[in-house]
Computed example of a mutant assay.
Amino acid sequence: MNRSVTWTVYRKELTELLRDRRTLISMVLLPMVVFPLLFGVVGRFMGEAEKKAATEATTVAIVAGSIPEVFLAPIAKSGLQRVEVPDVASAVANKTAATGLSVSADQKSLTIYAEGTRQASGMAADKLRSALSEYRDSLVVEKLREVKLDASVLTPFTVKRENVASERKMGGFMLGSILGYVVILLMFSGGMYPAIDMTAGEKERKTIETLLASPARRTDIVLAKILACVTATYLTAVLTTTSLFLSLKRGGGTMKGMEKMVGNVPTDVSTIGLVLLTLLPVAVMAGALMISIALRARSFKEAQSYLTPLIMLAIFPSLLGGLPGMELSPALSLVPIFNASQLLKSILQGDVPLVSFAITNLANLSYAVLCFALAVRIFNNEKVLFRT
């Protein structure tokens, strides 16, 4: 292997990639805007949506004359305005009222109506339920006093649930569930166009013959192309990760209900370093695999049809790795993509299993070597390389 030749071809490939607008968009622009949009724009929209829902959660539908007088006071206490309608359920469904209430003839059963897809309806139903529950409890206390019993007989003991996970761990769990999916998706997307351009693209431009006619050995050429693709893929991962941690520091507090958890996710150098170290073997594997597949294509369009399903296939294990209840074990550390997604979640939670960390990275490096060997074999196949 000639290092100087490999370096020359590598620089040539990078120069051509940096001239391609599509590559720059998928490799640089998208990774830098994903998380600022998520934490900034989406967070603001969530806040605005909640404010709007609060202003709309003001009415309760009732059938005229169907609500006993004793329940009118709790309704008034909830702050909801009564709207008399012929049919409560239809009124809530048609947005005539935010929520609705009906009372059985014996006054033993109350039904609160809500439209599950509307946040305002849910908020109004919660207000009404809270007011009616408070009224019910006051009736119970009053009955107990009449028979000279203490209200504590109803609650001889209390049960509470305490989460022993720290806010940092909870925040890492929630962010880690989406980090693997987003980063891996963007990595494959960022490396796809470079892989196609350096293989099928060169076939279409008829420049691959010139490269093969040079003194460079085919192993050096394919290694340089893989390294260029890995550079694009890993740069996407670095920019995405940087965007995430910067967004956490500056805009994470805009996510409603997640301020404390998101704010406690560590953004120190060691955490970022472990994340990037985990993503490096994945980038090498992805680059080598995409070059291997794209080499078989006759045209740019055909290569796209080959690599698009690959990206879709990469989504499933990354999503699976972010699901609650999934834990990384030495055996699961051998599953590509899934292992990296799980490991990223563990890193953000501050609980890195060293054995699984080592197995994951070694496994992904092994897969990368196999993909490189496959690419070299394909590159040496004249029938594949020059088929039209």
Rank of each mutant, 00 (worst) to 15 (best):
P194I: 00
G171K: 03
A232S: 12
K203H: 07
T219V: 08
T231S: 10
M198Q: 02
A165M: 13
T242D: 11
T210Y: 08
A216T: 01
I178H: 15
R168A: 08
E209G: 07
L227M: 13
M187W: 13
V159R: 15
L185I: 14
S166K: 11
V183M: 12
M174G: 09
T242C: 08
T241M: 10
P194M: 06
V238N: 14
L179G: 06
T199H: 02
G180R: 03
I221P: 02
R168N: 06
E167W: 14
L185K: 14
A228D: 03
R205D: 07
E162W: 02
L186K: 13
I221C: 04
T240A: 15
T240N: 15
V230C: 00
A237K: 14
T207D: 07
T199W: 00
Y234P: 05
L239E: 11
I221V: 13
A213V: 02
S243I: 11
M198Y: 03
A165Y: 06
V222R: 04
T236L: 04
T210P: 02
L175D: 05
G172A: 10
K225G: 02
L211S: 08
K203E: 06
S166D: 13
G180H: 11
M170K: 14
A165I: 05
R161T: 10
S243F: 06
T242P: 05
M192H: 03
I208S: 03
K169Y: 10
T207E: 07
L235N: 09
L175H: 06
A216Y: 04
K225N: 05
M187G: 08
T236N: 03
L186Q: 14
S189F: 06
D220C: 03
R205H: 15
T210D: 01
V164I: 08
K206P: 10
T231H: 10
Y181I: 07
G171P: 01
L211R: 00
V183R: 15
Y234A: 06
L235W: 13
P194N: 12
P215K: 05
L244A: 04
M187V: 06
M192G: 05
V182S: 15
M192P: 02
R168D: 07
A195L: 00
E167K: 15
V183K: 15
E204F: 04
G180D: 12
L235H: 13
E162H: 04
I221K: 02
Y193E: 09
R218N: 13
K160V: 12
A224C: 07
M174I: 11
M198L: 09
Y181F: 15
I184W: 12
L223M: 15
A213T: 02
E209V: 05
I178L: 13
V159D: 12
A224K: 00
L179H: 11
A228S: 10
Y193D: 08
R205V: 14
A195P: 01
R218I: 02
E204M: 07
A200M: 00
T242E: 11
R168M: 09
A237W: 11
I208F: 13
Y181L: 09
E209A: 11
A228H: 01
L239F: 04
G191P: 02
A237S: 12
S214K: 10
M192E: 02
M170Y: 08
V159Q: 14
L175M: 12
L235A: 15
I221W: 01
